[in-house]
Amino acid sequence: MTESEPGLRADAERNRERIMVAARRLYAAEGLGVSLAAVAREAGVGKATVARRFATRDDLVTAVFSDRMDAYAAATADALADPDPWHGFTRFLEAVCAMQAADRGFADVLTRTFPAAKGLEARRAEAYDGFLELITRAKATGHLRADFVAEDLVLVLMANAGVIAATGDAAPGSWRRVVGHLIRGFATPGAPLLPLADPPAPPALYRAMVRLSRPATFSGSRDVR
Rank of each mutant, 00 (worst) to 15 (best):
T2H: 07
E3I: 13
E3M: 10
G7W: 08
G7A: 14
G7T: 08
L8P: 03
D11W: 10
R14G: 12
E17F: 11
M20R: 13
G33E: 03
G33W: 07
R41D: 03
E42M: 08
G46E: 07
T49A: 09
V50P: 01
R52T: 12
R52C: 13
R53L: 09
R53Y: 09
F54M: 00
T56S: 12
T56F: 09
D58T: 11
D58M: 07
V61G: 01
T62E: 10
T62M: 09
F65Y: 05
S66H: 10
R68D: 12
D70P: 08
D70A: 13
A71K: 09
A73I: 09
A81M: 11
P83V: 04
P85N: 04
F89H: 02
L93P: 00
L93D: 03
E94Q: 09
E94S: 03
E94I: 05
M99E: 01
Q100M: 05
A101S: 05
R104L: 05
G105D: 03
A107G: 05
D108S: 12
T111K: 10
T111V: 10
P115E: 07
A117R: 08
A117T: 10
K118I: 15
K118S: 15
G119S: 13
G119A: 11
A125Y: 13
A125E: 14
Y128C: 07
Y128R: 14
G130I: 06
F131P: 02
T136K: 12
R137I: 04
A140S: 09
H143A: 11
H143V: 07
H143K: 09
L144H: 00
A146G: 07
A146Q: 03
A150I: 12
L153P: 01
V154N: 15
V156L: 15
V163Q: 00
A166H: 01
T167H: 02
S174W: 00
W175C: 00
G180C: 04
L182T: 07
I183N: 02
G185E: 04
G185C: 10
F186D: 02
T188M: 08
G190D: 04
L194K: 08
L194S: 15
L194H: 07
A197H: 09
D198H: 14
P200D: 14
A208W: 00
M209G: 12
M209V: 15
R211E: 11
L212H: 13
L212G: 14
R214H: 13
A216F: 12
T217A: 12
S219K: 13
R222C: 11
R225D: 10
